[in-house]
């Protein structure tokens, strides 16, 4: 893949963003202060935007794999219109937690959970719940970009409609809207009939985001969406996240402290000391990065361990 296909408008936009980020970085002097300032310089989102759903709430969530207790008593309220970052070292249960939020957890044969997850006030684990409808409302973007290789770019965007047997009156408009929101439209508008596998990794990931947007979810779960991408693509996706957060609830797992500081409004720090993963601290991102209450949080966000 060469970058020559990138339209100029896009690269200009990208440069502008990069410039903004460099400025943000130059404002700070030491590493911890840098993160704190990044976390504080975020532009607040307009309050009047139309929001989908009222958010997602986890109440006393525990998770097991067989007899192994991996997640202990997590309670978080994710409000609509916010981005929450889940941070913590590997193996602390972040991904497991995020997978309990759209019932992907139960695909692992020995997996079990306890507690409640309320989507717009209703428990998604309640008996008689149609799990496919839950997953329509709680979309997910995975660590590795996974477009369907047998479908074209356009078909990939509409895959959710096809899979859930939903009808759409104007598919072309929907494809365009979703690709624009995912920040991919300019790059692929002339080759919607090509196969998704021909895109670069970053483009594939944005295609996956567009795909999850097509079924208009209320909540978007992102499990380390940028860990396999280059900085440029990461930047594009972070920009996308900020735009999306105006209308929906976003929960993002990340190992990148800078990213957590840049994109999130709230941050939850997870940790496991050999036992089940626990949520050590939860609060406003600016607080977590500038003035953490727990010593372990401070050590982690300042890079002293993990």
């Amino acid at each position: 893949m060469t970058m020559s296909t990138t339209p100029e408008s896009l690269s200009a936009k990208q440069k502008e963003l990069e410039k903004k980020m460099t400025e943000e970085r130059s404002q700070s002097h030491t590493a911890p202060a840098s993160l704190a300032s990044v976390a504080q310089t975020k532009v607040s989102r307009p309050a009047g935007a139309k929001r989908l759903g009222t958010g997602l709430e986890a109440r006393g969530v525990h998770a097991w794999f067989g007899k192994n207790h991996v997640l202990s008593d997590i309670s978080v309220d994710f409000a609509s219109g916010t981005v929450t970052a889940l941070i913590g070292p590997s193996g602390c249960g972040k991904s497991t937690f995020i997978r309990t939020l759209n019932r992907m957890h139960e695909f692992i044969p020995t997996a079990a959970m306890a507690g409640e997850v309320l989507l717009d006030g209703k428990d998604i684990y309640a008996p008689g719940t149609d799990v496919t409808k839950i997953r329509l409302k709680v979309g997910m973007v995975f660590q590795k970009p996974n477009p369907f290789p047998s479908m074209t770019i356009g078909e990939n965007v509409l895959a959710g409609l096809r899979l859930a047997q939903l009808k759409s009156t104007n598919k072309d408009d929907l494809v365009e809207e979703c690709l624009i929101r995912a920040g991919l439209w300019n790059e692929v508008k002339d080759r919607l009939d090509e196969h998704g596998g021909a895109l670069s990794g970053g483009q594939q990931q944005r295609l996956c985001i567009a795909r999850s947007l097509a079924v208009s979810p209320h909540v978007l779960l992102m499990d380390e969406p940028c860990s396999a991408l280059d900085p440029g693509s990461t930047l594009r996706i972070e920009e996308t996240i900020s735009e999306l957060a105006e209308s929906m609830t976003i929960i993002i797992v990340t190992h990148n402290m800078q990213q957590a500081a840049r994109v999130s409004d709230y941050t939850a720090f997870f940790l496991s000391d050999g036992g089940p993963g626990e949520m050590v601290e939860y609060g406003k991102t600016s607080e977590i990065f500038s003035n953490p209450k727990d010593k372990r949080t401070e050590n982690y966000v300042t890079g002293r361990f993990g």
Partner: peptide, 27 residues
């Protein structure tokens, strides 16, 4: 069948049959 594609289909609200049609059969 690649697990990531199976999961992608489920995460989009696919029923098992829809997942099989979209992912497993083409693969």
């Amino acid at each position: 069948t690649p697990l990531d594609r199976v999961q992608a289909a489920y995460a989009l609200g696919a029923t098992k049959w829809a997942m099989i049609k979209a992912v497993a059969l083409p693969y």
